[in-house]
Amino acid sequence: MLLKVKNGNFSYHREMPVLKNVSFSLDKGEVMAIMGPNGIGKTTLLKCLMGILKWKSGCSLIDGENSGAARRQIGYVPQAHRFSFSYSVRDMVVFGRAKHMPVFALPGRKDYQISDAALEEVGIAHLADKSCNQISGGQLQLTLVARALAGQPKLLILDEPESHLDFCNQSKILRIIRRLSIEKGIACIMNTHYPNHALRIADRILLLNENKYIVGQTSQVLTKENVQEYFGVSSTIVSADAYGREIKAFVLLDEI
């Protein structure tokens, strides 16, 4: 197992636990989607995994090492946001190399090569010299993915990578995540609000709600019963045949 979370507990205030006894594991090359209502602690969970927040009890391990200490193995893709200084896309991606460099070092030829390869990987090599604050939201999200890849992670953590993106960019991001997990064996954890995206690319699902969670194979966890229980909406799964494949999707049944 690449990632193991054992009885993780976290709270911002002692009386109000956010995460209670969370345990799960993730293997190399697996994609896991974390779903749950707003403000339930999805981002908090990701921050605990990265060691930005400390577990109150329990732990998370990467290859048996505490995941905060092994932060080097994790690539994090934040939600796209604007930066105070408009670095070029290439500069931004090279920043992903920082964790492998000593504190006084400047990035060398090898760092630039790895970063350029990461730009190729997500298909935005042509934007390398553009300013990060002048490209579109979708391109910025891809830049941040490339930056995470430049750090050569074993585990990629993405915070709602496809929110705020148009249809085309949504599927582009999902395709990249799928490809990275299959071709490079990178494990991916993503927060998402779209059950249909989870159905498309996730091997495993973690459903989170107040004081409870459920984790398991996508087909077993992402059912209309669980969606009713965790989100309080009634829905059904429909399936469409396209190009000889069956594609499943949730449809909301609630009266609007």
Partner: peptide
């Protein structure tokens, strides 16, 4: 420290998540 300063200029959390 001039190159490392770039990482810090992205903000505290961003620096953390970049492994610094």
């Amino acid at each position: 420290l001039r190159w490392r300063l770039n990482i810090l200029s992205l903000g505290e959390e961003e620096a953390y998540s970049l492994g610094v």
